[in-house]
Structure formats: structure tokens, C-alpha cells
């Protein structure tokens, strides 16, 4: 068929994880009960998702808290094992999530160097791109301050700038844009375009429906680990917001 090429192919993916039914045990309780292993239940987080991600596409992933959005992204990067089903892709996706900082004690500049080397740049390549990355992060004035002195928006910008310094083929963004300002969102849009124009794909998880409308070509609505609807962003967002089960934020 004449479909655009698939970059990630998710087939009937099931992911469960453990929820412990008792608090973490110290040695004392462990001995008292004669075991260290805690009792747990397997909670199904993703239950049979089938999905294709195409070249040059930005896919939005929406759903209430606990719908399995982040779990699905983690499974796509191989961070969580599948219980059944399969996920195949052209290359390992880069997952960008909300986390603290790279190296809080080091300056923004040093963090760029470290991140760049982890991405597989040589030192010389990082140095050559340094100014570009600093400008992208919009941190020219603050780049030599320790990263722990940055605001959460500045941290998010810097991490985004570093993680996308090498344009990934498959970029998964989990609630990252929410913390940035309008300028950051504009730059993020630029990077998302870079990924797409290099025949890549982007998956965007967010609770912000404006981001969905603005960035996405297609939206998947996840609910309790299953796909509830897929399609045109405007249409899906409307019915998502209208759904009684959904708590608007």
C-alpha cells in the first residue's frame, strides 16, 4: 500500500507492574515474617495496545492519570518489559521525561558537554555545537552557573536542548513542554519539526489540550490501558473533554 513507512509498530502490547501490598520491610520485619519478599499484585497498566507510528508524524497521547501513557512510552524504550505482545521500531527511541537535573553541581555548560558525550558526540563536536545548544536553551546569560540554581523552566529547556542536540529518529516527550514558557514551546516546535523533516516520528504525552491541537497530526486516547479512540486531534480532544469520566485540568 502507499502508506507512509512505519517507524514504531506496537502489537497487542500488555504491560503490568507490581504494586506492593505492604510497606517496605526492614530486616527485622523480614526475619519476623520469615521472608523478605513482599506481597504484591500485578496491576495491568497497558492492556492490548496496537498502534503504528509513521514517518513524519507527531502523535499525541492523552488520557486521564493512570491511563498507561507513560507506561507505554517506557515500554517503547525498553525500560519496562512486556507481558505479551511486541514493540518493534527502526531504532531505539529517545525518551524525554520530567526528571530533576543532569548534574546539579556543575554548570549548564559542563552539563551540555556531559550530555553531548553520552549522546555519542565527540568532545570536539560538542564544543562546536555548544553555542547553538546554549542559544536553543535560551540560557546565554546563565550557562556558567551551577544547574541547581536554575528555575524548573530553565532546567527543562536545557535538558530538552541537550537531549535533542542529536536529532533523534523517534522522540518520545512525556509532559516536558508543560513546564516551559511560550518561547520554549516555540523552540520545541522547531525541534519537533526537525525530527519530522528527518523522516522521524514524535510521540507527545500531555494533559495540555492546546499542545495537542498545536503539535499533533493524530491523537490516541488511552483509558485504563486500552485505546479508546484514535484520530484527528480536534475531534478527539473535543470528545475527550466532553467525556464524563474525564476530570478536566
Amino acid at each position: 500500500m502507499s502508506d507512509p513507512a512505519v517507524t514504531v509498530e506496537v502489537r497487542d502490547a500488555h504491560v503490568s507492574y507490581r504494586v506492593f501490598e505492604e510497606p517496605a520491610m526492614g530486616l527485622k520485619q523480614g526475619f519476623a515474617r520469615g521472608r523478605m519478599r513482599r506481597q504484591y499484585r500485578m496491576i495491568p497498566a497497558v492492556q492490548g495496545v496496537t498502534l503504528d507510528l509513521f514517518e513524519r508524524e507527531t502523535l499525541g497521547l492523552i488520557g486521564p492519570n493512570g491511563a498507561g501513557k507513560s507506561t507505554l512510552l517506557a515500554a517503547m524504550t525498553g525500560l519496562l518489559p512486556l507481558r505479551s505482545g511486541s514493540i518493534r521500531g527502526r531504532s531505539r527511541p529517545s525518551l524525554l521525561g520530567v526528571s530533576s537535573v543532569l548534574r546539579p553541581a556543575l554548570s549548564g555548560r559542563r552539563n551540555i558537554l556531559i550530555g553531548g558525550l553520552a549522546l555519542g558526540f565527540t568532545r570536539a563536536e560538542v564544543e562546536r555545537r555548544m553555542d547553538e545548544i546554549i542559544d536553543f536553551a535560551g540560557l546565554r546569560a546563565d550557562i556558567d552557573r551551577p544547574m541547581r540554581t536554575y528555575s524548573s523552566g530553565m532546567r527543562a529547556r536545557l535538558r530538552f536542548a541537550i537531549a535533542t542536540a542529536r536529532i533523534p529518529e523517534i522522540l518520545l516527550i512525556d509532559e516536558v513542554l508543560t513546564v516551559g514558557d511560550e518561547e520554549f514551546r516555540r523552540l520545541a516546535a522547531e525541534r519537533i519539526d526537525d525530527v519530522r523533516s528527518a523522516s522521524g516520528s514524535v510521540v507527545l504525552v500531555t494533559h495540555n489540550m492546546n499542545e495537542i491541537r498545536r503539535f499533533c497530526d493524530r491523537v490516541v486516547w488511552l483509558d485504563e490501558g486500552r485505546i479508546r479512540a484514535v484520530g484527528d486531534p480536534a475531534e478527539i480532544v473535543d470528545s475527550y473533554l466532553a467525556a464524563p469520566s474525564h476530570n478536566s485540568r
Binding site: 502508506d3 514504531v8 509498530e9 498502534l51 511486541s86 514493540i87 518493534r88 527502526r90 479512540a229 484514535v230
Partner: peptide, 29 residues
Amino acid sequence: MSTEAVDGSGSSSSEDAPVRPLIDLTSRP
């Protein structure tokens, strides 16, 4: 709103000569 886009078109595009073969993302290298 419906589920037509996901499964319907998805299954058809799986085998026609992709640029590179897909690798299993859930297993370790």
C-alpha cells in the same frame, strides 16, 4: 471519533519494503 485509523491502516503497512528492518525494542541489545 472511532478507532479506524489505528488498526485498520496499521496492519496493511507492515510488510512493504521498509527502509530498514524494524528491531525488537523490548529486548536488550
